[in-house]
């Protein structure tokens, strides 16, 4: 890919020749693409294509082996250990397996994001958490513990956790893979709502149903390589 001029006003994520190797295995090879600010972006491809690895690189769950990546103005190849939390506070992350803390209530799982961000007013935390739980339809279960919830409910809580800090980017790694169609539809609608409120949403998926929905941009991975990109910066069709 020819190196393009980087406009931080327009581009919120840039990957340039990003590679990741695990020993002799090439998980990602020279992946390059841009994600525009306020995009609704799909990263698709078959299982094992490197979608989840790419997602981990974006929130620095893994460090890239070579190349460079800029996420919301932060250069991931130069970021120091102490700056990683700052990057992650700008992101809302949704995982396929929800990754809620089982020993904490729904309220505490979501509120933890605000505590991590340094918010100490219990009243403000309560208001913000209850507001976002209302949005995802989980306010009445705020004192339940994750193991007592269905998969769809847990994913809605995970989405509330991703949204409560008003992140500039929401990364959703196969968010509907463990859900039935009805629950998947609901999660997708919530992601669209977050996008409408101004967040850039990046979703990895190989779910044809999700992919049939509209988006503003798309990257297709195969065997760790980005074989196609499809930007639609001008408008979205969802």
């Amino acid at each position: 890919m020819r190196k393009m001029l980087f406009d931080p006003e327009r581009t919120i994520i840039r990957l340039y020749e990003v590679s990741k190797h695990f020993g002799d295995t090439d998980a990602l090879v020279d992946v390059s693409f841009d994600v525009c600010r306020n995009a609704f972006f799909f990263i698709s491809g078959p299982s094992g294509a490197g979608k989840s690895t790419l997602m981990k690189l974006l929130y620095l769950g893994e460090r890239m082996s070579s190349g460079y990546a800029i996420v919301d103005g932060m250069n991931l190849s130069r970021i120091k250990h102490g700056q990683v939390p700052m990057l992650r506070r700008r992101l809302g992350i949704v995982f396929q397996d929800y990754r809620l803390i089982p020993g904490k209530s729904v309220f505490d799982n979501v509120g933890l994001v605000l505590e991590v961000a340094g918010m100490s007013s219990r009243k403000t935390i309560r208001e913000r958490v209850m507001s976002v739980l209302e949005k995802v339809g989980m306010a009445d279960r705020h004192d339940a513990f994750p193991p007592t919830l269905s998969g769809g409910e847990q994913q809605r809580v995970a989405l509330a956790r991703a949204m409560v800090g008003n992140p500039s980017i929401i990364l959703a790694d196969e968010p509907t893979a463990s859900l039935d169609i009805e629950a998947a539809e609901r999660i997708f609608d919530l992601l669209v709502a977050a996008h409408e409120e101004g967040a850039t949403v990046v979703i990895t998926t190989h779910d044809r149903y999700l992919l049939s929905k509209g988006c503003t941009g798309r990257a297709y991975l195969k065997n760790g390589r980005c074989v196609a990109t499809e930007p639609h910066p001008e408008g979205m069709d969802i």
Partner: peptide
């Protein structure tokens, strides 16, 4: 797992 999740949502070492 709890520590990992807390890290992923942006907690620093002190937190």
């Amino acid at each position: 797992e709890e520590i990992k999740i807390t890290r992923v949502i942006g907690a620093d070492d002190t937190f």
